[in-house]
Each structure stands twice: as structure tokens, then as C-alpha cells.
Amino acid sequence: MAKAFKYGLKGITGFLEPAERELLRSLIDDVISMLQPEDRTGQDPLAALIGLDMDVAEPTDRAVKRLLPNVVKDDGAASLEFRQLTERSLRETKIGALRAAALDLDKDEIVLTPEGARHWSMALNDVRLVLAERLDIRDEADAEHVHRMQDWSQAEDVESYLALVYNFTTWLQESLVQAMLQSMESRR
């Protein structure tokens, strides 16, 4: 079984079983593939160089849209304009954090620097956002319903399996963030 992240002399440490690391790795890979910008031939190379993307569109996949939300409520045009300027680098930021977390999955014991912990917390959060969309978590009642699913022997369909995976990542992120808050407190 995984051990909760904790803050101690070595920094922030955690422990994951091989199967848990494999699971996290595939979840992270899924999110990375959702965030990878399409390779567009014929795109203005100078625009690409400075991170501009004039062909960007509001995501149609709800999970991708949750990862890359509109920046102005009820204003698609203003949000789109903002996407052209920022979405590419936002995707890269997210992919960077996800890749950094995946690299730490090579060993059972995970030892994180403050920077590494930040990457992990962002990566776990994005994984949870995607799982939550797949589980159709729309409000706190939905979240509570999913949270009640704790017994792996009950996992008999895709939804209950996803719910258990979601709860595992929630538990892991919560322990990580508590350790990060402790670490921040001790540095004050």
C-alpha cells in the first residue's frame, strides 16, 4: 500500500507500490496526450516561436476545457483572443509538471524538493480534474457520492473503478499538500 506523503528531515517523501506507480504513470500519460498541441503544418513559424497560436479554438472535450478554461465568463471572443496568446504556454507548463512527476515514478520511495512537490501537486490536480469530468462530478453531492466508493472489491464496472482511482489520487494529493503546507510553515 502507498504511504501518505510526509514532511520530515529529508524533505517531502512518499512511497508507492509498483502497481500504483504504473497506474499514476498511465494517468499522467493520458493527461499529457490530451494537452499535447496538435502538430499543425503550415503554421507561421515565427508565431509558433513566440508562443502565439492563431488557429487555437475553445476545446470541445469537457475535460480539456476544464484544464484550459475560458478566461472571461460568457465572452467567447475575448477568451479566444486570450487563448491565442497564452494557451500554448499553458499547455507546456502543465505538460512540464506532469513529465516531472512521471520522472519521479521510477523509484518506490519518492523524495521531493519544494519545486518537485509543486509539480506533483499540479500534476495530481490535473489528473483529478480529468477523472472528475469522466466521472461526471458536477457538484459537491456528486463528489460525495464518488467519495463513498472506497472498497476495491466492489469495483465491478468502469465507473466504480474510476471512482476508486479518483479517490486514491485525491488521498495522495491531500497528503502531499498537507506536507507542502507544513514545509512552507517551517520555512517561515
Binding site: 484544464l67 484550459l68 472571461v72 507548463t93 480534474l129
Partner: peptide
């Protein structure tokens, strides 16, 4: 958005 918070 980088952190995954819902900001406008």
C-alpha cells in the same frame, strides 16, 4: 489555470 484553479 496552471495550478488547475478555475479563474476568470
Amino acid at each position: 489555470h496552471g495550478f488547475g484553479l478555475w479563474a476568470t
